[in-house]
């Protein structure tokens, strides 16, 4: 066990914890509204463990898309988690089970902060500290979101339908700051807008994948 010897700055942990608390509250108000079950909302938050995937699935279903289209949308937006796990994996010197546990918790902030360490022992230690801060925020936020979701009445009158896309913008903010990421998002959005009137609901979202392939021609950002 590498231990938790190296801890990031408390300010960093607090900032990440607060961000995930906000995400937990807002995402789960939306999930509860569409799921209608507190238990399933909380279990999905903990087990799926990927807000983007939950939101992409719900967005397709909201639009009237089919079950399969919703699932595919949820799966394809999770490719970035595989990439984050690969980035972390390259820097770890721990056993197989420890690796699996860390892989399943790979998110942008914990991998991003951890891989800045030079020592493998510090990488895994920092990774778990940030993961702990994220989860304290996410789990407490989820519970409060489920509670709030029950007391909030007309979500549309409160403008909560705009919160859904606004949240997604915040979640992919780091991708949008890269020229190729921004291009992919704009192309994906444009493809979707053009196809919405002519194709069955949900299909335009899946076909927006083509935007990612086209964005490959944009030069890679220098690290």
């Amino acid at each position: 066990m590498a231990g938790l010897s190296k801890r990031p700055d408390l300010g960093v942990l607090l900032g990440i914890g607060l961000t995930f608390f906000t995400l937990g509250v807002t995402v789960n108000v939306l999930v509860l509204e569409r799921t209608g079950s507190e238990l399933r909302t909380v279990v999905a938050a903990l087990v799926v463990n990927a807000a983007t995937t939950e939101l992409a699935y719900l967005a397709v279903r909201d639009a009237g898309g089919g079950l399969l289209a919703g699932l595919v949308a949820g799966w394809v937006v999770a490719t970035r988690f595989g990439l984050l796990a690969a980035g972390l994996g390259a820097r770890l010197e721990v056993g197989r089970w420890h690796r699996a546990a860390a892989g399943l918790q790979s998110f942008d902030p914990n991998v991003g902060v951890a891989v800045q360490e030079s020592e493998p022992r510090a990488v895994i230690s920092v990774f778990w500290w940030v993961t702990l801060a994220m989860h304290l925020g996410w789990v407490s936020g989820t519970l409060i979101g489920v509670f709030l979701g029950n007391v909030i009445g007309d979500a549309e009158r409160l403008g909560l339908d705009a919160v859904f896309p606004a949240l997604l913008l915040a979640v992919i903010a780091s991708l949008l700051r890269r020229r190729d990421g921004l291009t992919a998002a704009l192309l994906g959005g444009a493809i979707c807008a053009v196809l919405i009137p002519v194709l069955p609901a949900g299909v335009p979202i899946i076909l927006s994948l083509v935007g990612a392939v086209a964005a490959l021609s944009i030069p890679e950002p220098s690290p």
Binding site: V77, C192, A212
Partner: peptide
Amino acid sequence: FARLASLIPAAVVGAVIIQLTIADGRSL
């Protein structure tokens, strides 16, 4: 693969945002 894996979520989430922002059923 690495570039595609990072660009696919950007494209699909961009599409989802458009769907949630300017679509009303099948009209814009």
